[in-house]
C-alpha cells in the first residue's frame, strides 16, 4: 500500500493520510508552534526533574563567599570563572567537593607552580581557615564528597584488616612501605609519609591526580579508618625492627648497600691485610 512516494514523507504525515494542500505561511506557523511546544516541554521537564543550581538560586553562605573571593584571586586563572574550568589549563571543579579542595590545597599541590605531569606536594599556600573557606565555596557550588569531622580518623582502625586492604588496594602504586612508586610518563604515586589522616581520607574519597576514587561503596568508612590506621601506625610511626630501612625501596637499595658498604669495606680490608707483608 505504501508507495515510494509515501516512504519519502515523514511518519506523522503518513498516519495523517494524504496531505491537504496547505499554504506556505500556514506550514511555517505550524512548525514554529510545534518547536515552541517541544521546547517548553523539555524546559518544563528539566525544571521539574533536574536539581536546582544553587549557586544561582540560593544565596551563598558567608564562609563560601570568602572562599569565592580567594578563588577569584588565586584559582580563577586555571579553573575559570565559577570554577567551570579552562580548556587545556585546569579542570572544572563543579562537583569535586570540599574533600578534593582539602587534599589539593591542604597538601600544597594547589596552586600549581607550573603545568607538568603531576603536581608535587609542597608547603601549603593557604591557612587552614582559608582552605575551609575554599572548600565551602566549592561544596556549595556543586556538591561532592565531604570529609567527616575531626583530625584523627583512625581511632578504631583495625591494623590487620587495614594491612590487608592496604596491600590489595594501595601497595601496587604506593609500594609495600608507603614510600611511593613510579607511574607512566613522569606521573607517580607519592610517598604517604607526610600525609595526615584527613589527607589520606580525602585522597581515597576524591581520587586526586592519577589515583582512582575509592568511594564509600568500594571501601566503607570503617575500612578507610583501618587503612589509615595501618599507614599511620605501622608504616609511618612504627620503628623498623631490623635497623635502618634503606628507604624501604626493596632489593634495589639492598643491592646498592652490599656494594657500597660491604664490598668497599672488605676491599679496604684486603688492602690493609696485603699491605702488612
Amino acid at each position: 500500500m505504501t508507495s515510494d512516494n509515501d516512504r519519502r514523507r515523514g511518519l506523522f504525515a503518513r498516519l495523517r493520510g494524504r496531505p491537504a494542500a496547505r499554504s506556505r505561511g500556514r506550514r511555517r506557523l505550524g512548525a514554529a508552534v510545534r518547536l515552541l511546544a517541544a521546547l517548553m516541554l523539555a524546559g518544563g521537564a528539566y525544571t521539574a526533574f533536574a536539581p536546582s543550581v544553587q549557586a544561582q538560586d540560593t544565596p551563598m553562605s558567608g564562609v563560601a563567599a570568602d572562599g569565592k573571593a580567594l578563588f577569584n584571586e588565586s584559582c580563577v586563572s586555571c579553573h575559570g570563572r565559577n570554577a567551570q574550568g579552562v580548556e587545556g589549563r585546569g579542570p572544572s571543579l563543579v562537583g569535586v567537593g570540599s574533600a578534593s579542595v582539602e587534599f589539593q590545597v591542604g597538601s600544597g599541590r594547589m596552586p600549581m607552580v607550573r603545568q607538568e605531569a603531576q603536581a608535587p606536594r609542597k608547603p601549603p599556600v593557604f591557612t587552614p581557615d582559608e582552605i575551609r573557606q575554599l572548600g565551602q565555596y566549592i561544596q556549595e557550588l556543586g556538591g561532592g564528597p565531604e570529609l567527616p569531622p575531626g583530625e584523627d580518623l583512625h581511632e578504631d582502625g583495625n591494623l590487620a584488616a587495614g594491612g590487608e586492604l592496604f596491600r590489595i588496594n594501595c601497595a601496587q602504586c604506593h609500594a609495600f612501605g608507603g614510600g611511593g612508586g613510579a607511574l607512566s610518563s613522569g606521573k607517580y604515586a607519592p610517598t604517604l609519609k607526610p600525609a595526615s589522616d584527613r589527607q589520606i581520607y580525602a585522597a581515597m574519597l576524591s581520587g586526586p591526580q592519577n589515583m582512582p576514587v575509592f568511594g564509600d561503596n568500594q571501601i566503607t568508612p570503617e575500612q578507610k579508618a583501618d587503612i589509615i590506621a595501618y599507614i599511620q601506625e605501622n608504616l609511618n610511626h612504627n620503628q623498623d625492627p631490623g635497623g635502618f630501612n634503606l628507604g624501604r625501596y626493596g632489593p634495589s637499595t639492598e643491592g646498592l648497600a652490599i656494594f657500597l658498604v660491604g664490598i668497599v669495606a672488605l676491599v679496604f680490608t684486603t688492602l690493609w691485610i696485603a699491605g702488612k707483608s
Binding site: 596491600r167 590489595i168 609500594a175 609495600f176 611511593g180 612508586g181 626493596g250 634495589s252 639492598e254
Partner: peptide, 18 residues
Amino acid sequence: LFGPYEAWVVSAASQPDW
C-alpha cells in the same frame, strides 16, 4: 611488610635481589 603471598597482591618496587 609484604604480607602473605596472594596472587592479587603485587607491590610497587617488587624487585629481585641484585
